[in-house]
Write a protein that binds this DNA or RNA. Structure first.
Length: 270
DNA sequence: ACCGGAGCCTGTTAGC
DNA sequence: TGCTAACAGGCTCCGG
């Protein structure tokens, strides 16, 4: 479900509700998702009593900075976070519940159970291998150039590889490549300087647009308050198979690359 | 370094 | 209508 813009939207929504709150309990009914501790009890023992100092995003990870540790969560395909009154009816898909000192709860709902939770003292234990944050100042045209230059890999799988540029997923990869007019099957090292520059701006444009529109509610994603985002109304190719390209009217094609469905305009993208 | 495939889960959708 | 297969916005592990 969520890529960088969706995760950013989640963080912005839950941040004010978590800041300066102290965690009074943690419950979990699916221990497999806990990546830092052997079981829920040991995580609970460590997290209870810690206060939320900050909430931020790194790539697709949500980082809750606590007094002593970092609570780092990943929503993967179907994860959803909300902060609600402890009285609010819950659902069988809520597998982690963090109770706060004002009788509210941070709930991690996750139908497919792919999402992860970790409580670590050094955030690099989880975030250490991530590549550039694409909207940050250190992600430059030159940076993208160096990523692309020596690699024979196809562009789409390269953009999905979080160790180079972190935060792009299937929607925004397809959208960025369309905007840059680059075929997703293109070998990275064959991109011209002009194409790299176009792609650089396209990546930043589509991600920023996704944030401004509070995410794309194409499948299951909704904001923490349950409302839809708006980015689904601005996509050019994603899940528009056989529909006419908005630029040239050619039917959008769908293929599989690296096990992921990939949408592109066979005429606009070279 | 990179590629493909299997696996992790469960609900929804497409196709016969 | 009902069953089955494919599919889903992510990522990791394995073998080659």
């Amino acid at each position: 479900m969520p890529e960088l813009p969706e995760v950013e939207t989640v963080v912005r929504a839950i941040r004010p509700k978590l800041l300066n709150r102290t965690i009074t309990n943690y419950e979990n009914d699916w221990g497999n998702r806990i990546k830092s501790h052997a079981d829920a009890a040991s995580l609970r023992a460590q997290i209870v009593g810690q206060m939320v100092v900050d909430v931020r995003r790194r790539a697709k990870f949500i980082v809750v900075v606590l007094t002593h540790d970092y609570l780092i969560m990943h929503l993967r395909m179907s994860g959803h976070l909300s902060v609600v009154s402890a009285e609010t009816p819950t659902s069988k898909y809520v597998h982690d519940t963090f109770t706060l000192d004002n009788s509210t709860q941070l709930r991690f709902r996750d139908t497919r159970k792919f999402g992860t939770v970790a409580l670590v003292s050094d955030e690099n234990q989880v975030l250490g291998k991530l590549g550039f944050e694409p909207l940050s100042a250190d992600f430059t045209i030159a940076a993208l150039q160096s990523i692309v230059a020596s690699r024979r890999r196809q562009m789409k799988p390269l953009l999905l590889d979080q160790s180079h540029v972190a935060g792009i997923g299937n929607i925004y990869a397809d959208e960025a490549l369309f905007e840059a007019q680059v075929d997703p099957r293109r070998q990275a090292s064959t991109l011209t300087d002009a194409e790299i520059e176009r792609l650089y701006h396209a990546i930043r444009n589509v991600l920023q647009q996704g944030i401004d529109r509070e995410g794309a509610s194409i499948s299951t994603y909704v904001k923490p308050d349950g409302q839809k985002g708006d980015m689904q109304n601005a996509v050019n190719v994603f899940r528009r198979t056989d529909a006419p390209c908005y630029v040239c009217s050619t039917p959008i094609e769908r293929i599989k690359l690296a096990q992921r469905s990939t949408h592109f305009c066979p005429v606009c993208q070279k």
